[in-house]
Design a binder for these strands. Structure first.
Length: 422
RNA sequence: GUGGGUGUAGUUCAAUGGCAGAGCACCGGAUUGUGGUUCCGGGCGUUGUGGGUUCGAGUCCCAUCAUCCACCCCA
């Protein structure tokens, strides 16, 4: 008999971990709501072309990491590798670009990339993100960053770093790419193979090559920041000013380059140092050219996305979000058939009032029942046996103190609620 | 896609090429109505899978799959 196995690079979120996932998602939703963002959900697959156009044909995500497939009629789709393009597609498709004004969206859901799995990297992974569409005001660049920082702080994370950069607009990029090519051209023959293609396709990627011999040529390379035109320079200065006013610490790192082609101006990344190689838990930036690139009216926008898996790793490394498993308030024990007839209505009544009550007829002896109550961490044991049947009362034992009292079954819900709610 | 490490019981790990074991967890019991501690009992597991070498393979070799780490990429 063949054993079925979960696909490579995927994982199950088991019940023991679900509370933690629900918790971080709840905090994100609450944080987003407090900034005026509303949830949008899009399909997990889209026309493959949407991602090819938006992320860039030459990007790794499109070239080798996208799950592409044809449906029964030969239409080419892709499992979404990221969340921004679908949101923008929906925005344009619903004619919101014609409506004008600002639109604040957040999303939560799985993304898919055919990558080699490693720590903090999966083939199906869960992202949260926000998109603010309809304004180029630098305040909103800062607001988007502030939202993410607020979220991480609300979770209690302390060891996080914000790195900030501006990649300028399309015009600045052209100038900068030329400057980089001029700078590296004398060493072109000595660069690694990857860098030779980077030289042609994405010169700025020459700056983060890890090959030691390539690193050596990097000293004195021109910085993007020196090639910003006046409006972009001013925009970046204002973003920093707003962050300062909100007391959000950051470091300017000219090496921050977003992986997807659609980013302009502000780019940022949030780093947690002790997560291993995949230490970026969130990243984002402005994408003023994307809406028009997918067929909408020219509209400025900014957003970010964060990864839940890495976020949970970061929480773990700081011993945060330790969630206690749910424990029954009362474990009912019935000895004998007559007692069982009484215990089931009582069980229904308690549960109907929202009290977590357990009962397990599988456990045979009284001792085994008590053990089960203890093993589940129940606060109380409610006992019905011959004595209780005769008296019409049930015995309620406090499993912490060991004290036991005889109570009227009708009073049980109130007693439990009053004793145990803080 | 590239490189390295690791795959043995539910789990954490043992086992010179020679009878596959232990702790924890789990289940049961210690004269059938009182838990936690203690004691006793309960394990044939396709040693990830498929080949090969050998009298004999968990152990050596090859392949494959998975996982971990790194490159790469990115959140």
């Amino acid at each position: 008999m063949m054993r079925y196995k979960i696909p490579r690079g995927t994982y199950d979120i088991l019940p023991k971990d679900s509370a933690k996932w629900q918790y971080v998602q709840r905090v994100f939703r609450e944080t987003a709501a407090s900034f005026g963002y509303e949830e949008i959900s899009t399909p997990i697959f889209e026309m493959a072309e949407l991602f090819e156009r938006s992320s860039g044909e030459s990007s790794d995500v499109v070239q080798k990491e996208m799950y592409r497939f044809e449906d029964q009629k030969g239409r080419v789709f892709a499992l979404r590798p990221e969340g921004t393009a679908p949101v923008v597609r929906s925005f344009v498709e619903n004619h919101l670009d014609r409506q004008g004004g600002r639109h604040k969206y957040y999303y939560i859901g799985p993304m898919f990339r055919y990558d080699r799995p490693q720590k903090g990297r999966y083939r199906q992974f869960y992202q949260y993100g926000i998109e603010l569409i309809g304004s180029n005001h630098p305040f909103f660049d800062a607001e988007v960053i502030a939202l993410e920082m607020r979220f991480l702080k609300a979770l209690g994370l302390r060891k996080i770093r914000l790195e900030l950069n501006s990649v300028g607009c399309a015009g600045c990029s052209v100038d900068y790419d030329k400057a980089l090519q001029d700078f590296f051209r004398p060493h072109l023959a000595e660069l690694c193979g990857d860098c030779q293609t980077r030289f042609e396709q994405k010169p700025r990627r020459l700056l983060d090559c890890k090959v030691p011999s390539c690193k050596a040529f990097r000293a004195g390379a021109p910085s993007q920041l020196d090639y910003l035109d006046e409006p972009c320079r001013e925009h970046f200065a204002q973003v920093q000013s707003y962050l300062d006013d909100m007391s959000i610490a950051y470091t300017v790192n000219p090496a921050i380059v977003r992986g997807l082609d659609y980013y302009t101006n502000t780019a940022f990344e949030i780093i947690v140092d002790d997560l291993g190689a995949q230490n970026s838990i969130a990243g984002g930036g402005r994408y003023n050219g994307l809406i028009s690139a997918v067929g909408g009216k020219e509209t400025p926008a900014i957003g970010f996305a964060g990864g839940f898996e890495r976020l949970l790793l970061a929480l773990e490394s700081e011993n945060l979000a330790l969630i206690e498993p749910q424990k029954p308030l009362v474990f009912l024990i019935a000895m004998g058939d007559a007692a069982q007839k009484l215990v089931l209505p009582l069980l229904s009544d308690l549960r109907g009032r929202g009290i977590y009550a357990e009962y397990n007829p599988e456990k045979g002896s009284f001792k085994a029942q008590m053990k089960a109550a203890d093993a589940m961490g129940a606060a109380y044991a409610g006992i019905i046996g011959e004595d209780e049947l005769a008296s019409g009362k049930i015995s309620l034992k406090d499993l912490t103190s060991g004290e036991q009292s005889s109570v009227d079954p009708r009073d049980l819900p109130h007693l439990l609620l009053n004793n145990c709610t803080p």
